[in-house]
Amino acid sequence: MKVLVAIKRVVDANVKVRVKADNSAVELANIKMAINPFCEIAIEEAIRLKEKGHASEVLVVSIGPDTCQEQLRTALALGADRALQIKTDESPEPLAVAKLLKAVVDQEQPGMVILGKQSIDGDNNQTGQMLAALTGMPQGTFASEVAIEGDALQVTREIDGGLQKVSLKLPAVVTTDLRLNEPRYASLPNIMKAKRKPLETQTPEDLGIDISPRLTVLEVTNPPERAAGIKVGSVSELVEKLKNDAGVL
């Protein structure tokens, strides 16, 4: 079974972003970028499926300008077999991403597609579910455990009240939650080897997909700042403040 993993280049999780002065977007110039943390978990899960003998090949795909080749090379260094960049000027909306990925699914016929549950820039949490809809596949979102049982996939999902276990017919789409696995680091020899692994580039036109946006971002602003608080010296002072000043106890 071939496993397809979709990854996104995003602002590093440890960077605190700033809104541009003209309120058009978030400042991305000269900021450290990385693979979206949930996508790292997706890569790791695919590699583990290969190591366990369930997956025959891991194909990693990313959508964006040439800079995203850096993240694809990292995925190859981690153990993916080949990479595909779908070249776009900007980062398309989730619906367009899902359509592009559907075209890749049609070409490659994977047995499973693994994606991060959300990217930490747009926080949309949509692409995996949309891809499942467009390909007619079942979806195992927010997965904390996956197990292949014959021609079905058992997925343990993190839900608001606890955990839910579902069985999905393969091929299926899985989106990763934080506790699915702990991603490995790429070793230096593997980073060197990754440079020789195949990385192909296609365009939305090659795939025949219209990626024009449906949403217009009118403005990006800073959230309201919280006023600076005070330090209290003791538990009794704290309780007194909460009761009398804040009135919340």
Binding site: M130, V217, V220
Partner: peptide, 29 residues
């Protein structure tokens, strides 16, 4: 398209939603 986790209705087609872990608010139409 879907508009995720809106925090304000500006008009029938325009909404505010947090992005980047709530470090910015986007007004989307």
């Amino acid at each position: 398209a879907q508009i995720s986790e809106i925090t304000e209705v500006v008009s029938a087609d325009t909404f505010i939603r947090p992005i980047y872990a709530g470090n910015a608010l986007a007004k989307v139409q």
